[in-house]
């Protein structure tokens, strides 16, 4: 029995480590390529390690593209999306969960209906709206439609619903109004929900491709994602420089993830349970 257990464990480890290799190898190859010269990268059979580590590839990315601006745009757009969405959705979610008002059910049903529609469905009219507002090719265009989220409202509502009603009654007796109850009492209690939504939104906002690709046409207004797509279209593709760009584009979120891994993983797990 013991022996069997041991073999079983070894098999588990082999499978898991195999999985790790498959997961990590593309990243390793990306990093190694990003330090090679174009010739080293295109030699057959491929050289694993660069002879001289070409740090200059990273500088070339900044020559080819306004990469600093793209960082800035992505950070602004992701930052505003996350904070805006968390704030607006939590307000609405609180009201849906805790306050009785006429028409609530109808509005909430409409909201659920929006949840069912595939996101690509909205893109075209959203684009035309931004166009009518004269906001094409501006930074606000990147985040405005994403400030509002049916999913976020729905997710947070689940959290607010789970809180006991006595809390509110006590606060109301102390003379708190709805806003005070929301901001002072309820918000701290749903912190984990807010973090979860924030992380899901951040993941989306940082990585989204189609929307930024459509609304912003000049490189200076692009996000990193669209910048990578732009770089790939260049006539002669310099693979090491492209990989250097990719490394730099994914790094910030990876670093955040390493620091807040617990919150990231719990946030995702929670969306599965509460959604």
């Amino acid at each position: 029995m013991k022996r069997k257990q041991k073999i079983f464990n070894i098999v588990i480890y082999v499978v898991l480590i195999g999985g790790i290799l498959v997961t990590v190898l593309p990243f390793v190859w990306m990093i190694l390529t990003s330090f090679k010269t174009q010739n080293e990268a295109t030699v057959i059979p491929p050289a694993i390690f660069p002879k001289i580590w070409q740090i200059s590839n990273y500088g070339k990315v900044f020559e080819m593209l306004p990469f600093g601006k793209m960082y800035f745009n992505t950070i602004i757009s992701a930052g505003v999306t996350v904070s805006g969405q968390v704030l607006l959705c939590s307000l609405a979610a609180y009201a849906f969960a805790r306050i009785h008002f006429p028409g609530k059910n109808i509005i909430f049903t409409c909201l659920l209906a929006v949840l069912m529609v595939p996101s690509s469905f909205f893109i075209l009219p959203q684009y035309q709206l931004i166009q009518k507002m004269g906001l094409l090719d501006t930074i606000p265009a990147l985040f405005i439609p994403n400030l509002f989220s049916a999913f976020g409202t729905f997710l947070l509502r689940q959290f607010f619903m789970a809180l006991p009603g006595e809390l509110e009654d006590a606060a109301r007796l102390d003379g708190c109004n709805h806003f005070q109850i929301y901001s002072r009492i309820m918000m701290p209690l749903v912190r984990s929900g807010l973090v979860a939504l924030g992380i899901l939104t951040l993941r989306f906002a940082w990585n989204d491709l189609m929307w930024p690709l459509i609304v912003n046409t000049s490189p200076k207004k692009m996000t990193l994602s669209a910048g990578l797509a732009f770089m790939q279209g260049q006539h002669i593709t310099n693979y090491p420089v492209m990989m250097a760009g990719a490394v730099m584009a994914v790094l910030p979120l990876l670093i955040l993830f390493t620091i807040f891994q617990k919150q990231f993983i719990e946030g995702v797990a929670m969306s599965g349970i509460k959604g």
């Binding site: 000049s218 490189p219 732009f230």
Partner: peptide, 21 residues
């Protein structure tokens, strides 16, 4: 200067023309 790549140029130019940018 607003450089673009051939693959994207006409798509973006038309979008920009329609959107007034």
């Amino acid at each position: 200067l607003e450089p673009n790549v051939w693959d994207e140029y006409w798509t973006k130019l038309e979008a920009a023309a329609t959107g007034g940018t």
